[in-house]
Simulated assay, not measured.
Amino acid sequence: MSRLDEIAQDQRDEEEAASRRRVQRPRRASVGASLVGGFGELLITAGLLLGLFVVWQLWWTDVEGAREADQAVSQFTEGLEVEIPEVAGQERTEEPPAEPEPVDLSGETFAALWVPDWGTDYRWPVAEGVSRPDVLDAGMVGHYPDTAMPGQVGNFSVAGHRQTYGRPFYDIDTLAAGDSVIVQTHTAWYVYKVTDHRIVLPTEIDVIAPVPGEPGVEASEAMLTLTTCHPLWSTAERYIVHAQLDHWIPLEDGMPAELLEAS
């Protein structure tokens, strides 16, 4: 090999070595690429946190709400002073005894709500007040203060969640005229029959007036009103169900026939 050939070969060897070094040398990421990468990681983290929140909101609050509702119903049942015969009690239409007003104005369970069309295991505690932390988010149905007590002339009005926290009123839109909604107190069963339903704005509070929809008019009948959010996953409107007292039964006389038929 001539001297010129050796020089050319050396040059080629040096170029190949430099090329290998360039390939092996890690490239420094640009500032823009670093920012994009960091933002992507933040999005992934935010997505995971959002997913966990959805699981908590959709599932876990239902589990907690149902558990707290079961405990409240058990305490209510244990507090009954009479043993209820598992027979159909005689239906009464005369004026029922006066129900005592709850002493605790926030969260005291004083009744249980039964809806035979919603299944044999549907029995929900009714507590005084409509506070979210103390009542509604604790899995209970809340009684609007200053509305009538169960069975009394006026409008016994209650609120409940339609989604999350046990969702006691999830199936409210399935109630039809003539369906029974039953309220149990420490004294009696009060059997109401659904008369109608309405979809209203949250500002239309006259639905819980003594005479629904007619504020200022003196009541002459015993009514029941169920209220909840509408549509599902929204608080834009309220779904309202009205019912009228059909009859009542003292606890010691037995049970409403609807509950015996459902079981």
Rank of each mutant, 00 (worst) to 15 (best):
Gly178Met: 06
Thr235Val: 10
Ile208Gln: 14
Phe53Thr: 12
Ala243Trp: 01
Val194Ile: 03
Gly216Gln: 06
Ala88Pro: 04
Thr93Ser: 11
Glu204Ile: 02
His242Gln: 13
Val211Gln: 06
Gln57Met: 07
Arg21His: 06
Val54Arg: 10
Ala88Gly: 07
Arg21Asn: 07
Ile182Lys: 02
Glu237Asn: 02
Leu43Met: 14
Asp137Glu: 12
Val191Arg: 01
Ala29Pro: 08
Ala111Ile: 12
Arg28Ile: 13
Tyr190Ser: 10
Glu86His: 12
Trp118Phe: 13
Glu252Asn: 07
Ala72Val: 07
Ala111Trp: 00
Thr45Asp: 07
Arg28Met: 09
Glu14Ile: 08
Ala33Ile: 09
Glu91Arg: 15
Thr187Cys: 01
Thr235Lys: 05
Ile172His: 07
Thr187Met: 05
Glu261Leu: 11
Val63Cys: 06
Val181Trp: 00
Glu78Lys: 14
Ala127Pro: 04
Ala17Glu: 03
Ile7Asp: 12
Trp189Asp: 13
Ala188Trp: 11
Thr174Leu: 06
Leu35Glu: 06
Glu6Asn: 12
Ile240Tyr: 01
Leu50Asp: 00
Val103Pro: 12
Pro145Ala: 00
Leu113Ser: 12
Ile199Cys: 07
Thr185Glu: 02
Asp13Cys: 08
Trp118Ser: 07
Ala72Met: 09
Ser2Pro: 06
Gly129Ile: 12
Ser131Phe: 11
Val141Leu: 11
Pro145Val: 02
Asp62Tyr: 03
Thr147Gly: 12
Arg238Ala: 13
Ala72Gly: 08
Val217Gln: 05
Asp70Gly: 13
Leu201Cys: 08
Thr225Glu: 09
His247Gln: 09
Leu113Cys: 13
Arg238Ile: 13
Val217Lys: 04
Asp206Ile: 01
Trp233Cys: 08
Glu261Gln: 12
Glu204Ser: 03
Arg21Ala: 13
Val183Ser: 00
Gly89Leu: 03
Ala222Ser: 15
Ala69Phe: 06
Ala98Thr: 15
Gly40Gln: 05
Asp206Gly: 08
Asp134Val: 11
Ser30Cys: 04
Trp59Arg: 06
Arg198Pro: 00
Tyr192Val: 06
Gln9Lys: 08
Leu35Phe: 04
Ser263Ala: 07
Trp118Gln: 09
Ala46Thr: 15
Leu80Ile: 13
Gly38Leu: 09
Asp121Tyr: 08
Asp246Asn: 13
Ile7Val: 15
Val54Lys: 10
Leu136Asn: 02
Trp114Asp: 14
Gly37Ala: 10
Asp5Trp: 04
Glu41Trp: 06
Ala262Gly: 01
Met140Ile: 08
Ala66Ser: 15
Leu260Lys: 04
Lys193Ser: 15
Ala209Asn: 01
Phe53Glu: 11
Gln9Thr: 11
Gln57Val: 01
Glu94Met: 08
His242Val: 02
Ala219Trp: 04
Arg167His: 08
Gly40Cys: 04
Gly139Asn: 03
Ser157Phe: 01
Ile84Val: 15
Glu128Ser: 14
Asp171Val: 03
Trp59His: 09
Arg20Ala: 10
Thr227Ile: 03
His186Asp: 15
Gly119Glu: 10
Ala219Ser: 14
Pro210Gly: 03
Gly129His: 09
Ser106Phe: 01
Ser106His: 02
Ala188Gly: 10
Ser131Pro: 04
Ala66Lys: 15
Thr77Val: 13
Asp117Gln: 15
Asp121Trp: 09
Glu101Pro: 03
